[in-house]
Amino acid sequence: MIEATGLSKVYGSKTAVEGVSFTVKAGQVTGFLGPNGAGKSTTMRMIMGLDRPTSGTVTVNGLHYADHKAPLHEVGALLDAKAVHISRSAYNHLRAMAATHNIPTSRVHEVIEMTGLEAVARKKAGGFSLGMGQRLGIANALLGDPQTLILDEPVNGLDPEGVLWVRNLVRYLAGQGKTVFLSSHLMSEMAQTADHLIVIGRGKIIADAPVQDIIAGTRQVKTLVRTSAATQLSALLSGDGVTVDQGQPETLEVTGLDARKIAQVALDNRVLVYELTPQQSSLEDAYFDLTKDEVEYHSHLTGGPAGEFAPETAPATAGK
């Protein structure tokens, strides 16, 4: 379990993280989502004690990371795939890291096998591709068989097979009751991997809720309507809280009314409708809605139940 309370980090005149509080629970995959420069990496570095918080505290399993007797058994972290000496082999790098905690060499071989690095383990890490570097970073994180896993952009540079592997691995580890905290700017990846999401924007938490709630709650349902009388139907549907976008000829995008009501209006007015498709709101849409203006949504989203997530006045053209 990771607990951050009022965590802030100021670099000179730039505030990277501002009064962030959150809890990452064991037994599930928690995604840490945010645009570049939002403060994801800084927050993770503060968890690992690499950066000293300007104010606030963060603990892992009840203690500051540095206060644990066996830090690598508590937390395994991949913060930066390039945190390796370029002239040292992957095997020797892992062996040196393992030595600090008296982790046997057999475990080094184990993680090399787990991450599929056998073929390149004796080669210099400086020559590794981005994907290989990521695998080495993940091997390093798994070395101490930690209770908590922190991965900063783990699928960066991985091939599709590697992406799938990471997804299965973190799901498996969470299933084992471990805490998994993983950051990404890839929303599709998060939608498939994470159970819970913490969204950060410009150093502040703008959402902290289960993935499904964020997808369902942020955006009103949009329905695609194809009709022979687009202009007429558009006028009929328009009203309070309903917005209609007319894109291509004979095509409408209706927000604020569900498919059943649209069909009813069309039937009542004898308008021909030849397609009526509810659009599944994606995490991507939700994400853009959230990060568009973090201050506006801040009070609605933090800690509130799912139903309260929908903003009262969602601009219709958002997320296009």
Partner: peptide, 10 residues
Amino acid sequence: VRSTAGTKGV
């Protein structure tokens, strides 16, 4: 912690 990873700590 699984025994294969050792338990001694730093």
